[in-house]
Every structure is written in structure tokens, then in C-alpha cells.
């Protein structure tokens, strides 16, 4: 009984979610195998919800029937893409992953700041790859500003943010957000880095925007990908899930090249590289996983 209570408080699944058709676990495994996105047992109800919405669209009533759509139907690739869309709806928000931010501020920045060769340039470059409407990008910028009077005093921080979608970039530049995007934002940050537009909306302040430049970029555009050089950190959340194996592998190789030695590549919190690249080291921080490009010599930074 205690088990049910705790599981409930962690994820608030809808009533009656205890019995889940085993086919959904098959779908979960398929989604993982194809995209690298893992829906854990406690988030399985989200996957069930997403599947049910798609089942209505394609006109099938049973999970087994939907499984056929995903695996045997001629339009299976397209359907899988639609399902991935369903699964990532509304995921974007400010401060989505505090453990990732902690890893950056508590472990990685001190590491970079202590690196003697970097002390000459005193510059940190971050790439928010697939930035969507800018929530992740500005979250990073605010956290860097927090460090600018301490650990990063006298350092230059550059944040490059790219997305394929022009409208997303436009929205990111406007930088006006509502409650939903701000649902995880601590009050401290709201007060310090946003100005009030009206009673429902806040706008990111100019000093934060100054750190960031947005532009359009297609990851498949090899020549432009090569241009994104000397990054210390790359964030790419819920974007690679849409790529097939070979394209994903190629983009990951690009990210590896784009990073400085000793740099880090972050995916979404439950996203995996699926062992597609053996040059990166998968490293753990408390509550977060990242992919590390080994320092020259291969040892610790």
C-alpha cells in the first residue's frame, strides 16, 4: 500500500493507471530503440495518453492495433514521428532540468575556470542546439549571469542558439512568456531577470538577451555545422529523437567536432545516444547524464 502511495506522489498518474496493457511497454521499447527517448515506468501514463490520442486519429481502438500501425503499416515512419510529437508536447519550459544546471554550475564551470589554458582566453561558448522558443537558452544565460560576479568574473560568455524553425526563432527573440513556460522558474529568477508585460506575461530582460544570439540552422547542413566551432557546452534536447540512425550518428559526430577538448554535450534528461558514438564518454553528475569529449591525453581535465 505504501508503495502505491509513493508511486502516486511521484508521478500523479490518472486513476486506474495501475494496469497497463503490456503492448505499451513494447511501444516504449520501440520508441527508445528508434529515438533514444526513454519513458520510464512512472511516466508510462504519458506514453499511454500520447498513444491514445494518436489511436483516435488513425482510427484504431486497441493498443495492439496501434502497434501494427507503428510497425507493419506502410506509413509507420510517419506515425512514429507523430507519436514523438505527442510525447514532447509542452515539454519546453524554463528550468526544465535543475540537475543539469547544477552539474554545469557546481562541477563543470569550476573545472573550466581552473583550466589554465582557458584562463588565457577567459571565454566560454555554449550552443543551445534546437533551441525552440528560447526557454532553455535563456535559462542557461541567467545561470551564467549568476556566476558572472563569482566564478566567471572577468570571463566572456557567448551563447549561440539555433533552430530549424524561423517562427520559433522569432518567438525566442521576442522573449515574452506565459505561466506555462515559467512553471518551474524560481521566484528569485523571475524577479531578477524578467520584466512584467501584463498580468499574465513576463519578458526576458535585455541584459540576459545580450548574452544570446539566435539563428536558423539545419543540422543536416554539413558546411554550416562545421562552422560552429570551439564550444565548451552543447545542449540538444528532444531534437535528435526525430533523426534516423545514420543521420543521428552524423550529427553527433559534428557535435563532437564542434566541442573543445574537455567539453560537454547534454541531451534531454531521459534521452540516450544509443551507443551511436564511442568517442564521447558517458559521464554521470548527481541526477544528470552528459557526454564528455575527453581532454587531450584522455585523462581527467
Amino acid at each position: 500500500m505504501a508503495g502505491m502511495q509513493i508511486a502516486g506522489s511521484l508521478s500523479s498518474p490518472p486513476d486506474g493507471a495501475a494496469v497497463i496493457d503490456p503492448v505499451y511497454r513494447q511501444i516504449r521499447d520501440l520508441v527508445y530503440k528508434v529515438s533514444g527517448m526513454y519513458k520510464s515506468e512512472e511516466k508510462l501514463y504519458l506514453l499511454v495518453g500520447g498513444c491514445e490520442r494518436r489511436m483516435k486519429q488513425v482510427g484504431t481502438k486497441s493498443p495492439r492495433g496501434y502497434w501494427e500501425h507503428l510497425t507493419a503499416h506502410p506509413s509507420r515512419d510517419g506515425e512514429l514521428r507523430q507519436l514523438l510529437n505527442e510525447l514532447t508536447i509542452g515539454e519546453t519550459c524554463f528550468f526544465r532540468s535543475q540537475p543539469q544546471l547544477d552539474a554545469v554550475r557546481k562541477v563543470i564551470l569550476p573545472e573550466l575556470a581552473a583550466d589554465k589554458t582557458r584562463q588565457i582566453t577567459r571565454r566560454i561558448r555554449i550552443w543551445s542546439a534546437g533551441c525552440s522558443t528560447g526557454e532553455e537558452t535563456y535559462t542557461l544565460a541567467m545561470n551564467m549571469l549568476e556566476e558572472s560576479t563569482a566564478l566567471l568574473k572577468g570571463w566572456t560568455v557567448e551563447i549561440l542558439a539555433t533552430d530549424l524553425n524561423d517562427r520559433s526563432i522569432e518567438a525566442a527573440n521576442t522573449a515574452i512568456y506565459g505561466d506555462y513556460a515559467l512553471r518551474c522558474t524560481p521566484e528569485y529568477f523571475k524577479r531578477k531577470y524578467f520584466s512584467v508585460v501584463d498580468d499574465k506575461k513576463l519578458q526576458v530582460r535585455p541584459e540576459v538577451k545580450k548574452l544570446v544570439s539566435f539563428s536558423r540552422l539545419n543540422f543536416q547542413d554539413d558546411s554550416r555545422m562545421l562552422f560552429m566551432k570551439s564550444m565548451d557546452l552543447v545542449f540538444c534536447c528532444n531534437v535528435l529523437i526525430y533523426f534516423d540512425g545514420p543521420s543521428k550518428s552524423k550529427v553527433i559526430d559534428h557535435f563532437f567536432t564542434n566541442l573543445n577538448y574537455g567539453g560537454y554535450f547534454f541531451l534531454g534528461t531521459s534521452e540516450s545516444l544509443l551507443n551511436l558514438n564511442d568517442k564521447f564518454h558517458l559521464v554521470h553528475f548527481p541526477g544528470a547524464i552528459a557526454h564528455w569529449k575527453p581532454s587531450l591525453g584522455g585523462g581527467k581535465p
Partner: peptide
């Protein structure tokens, strides 16, 4: 990575 995600699933149960 997947092994780590699977471990996360068990955290609530272990607490219980």
C-alpha cells in the same frame, strides 16, 4: 544510459 533511466524507475519503489 538506459540502465540509469531504469534505476530511476525503482527509486520510488525502494523508498516505499
Amino acid at each position: 544510459a538506459r540502465f540509469s533511466f531504469e534505476l530511476d524507475e525503482a527509486v520510488g519503489e525502494i523508498a516505499a
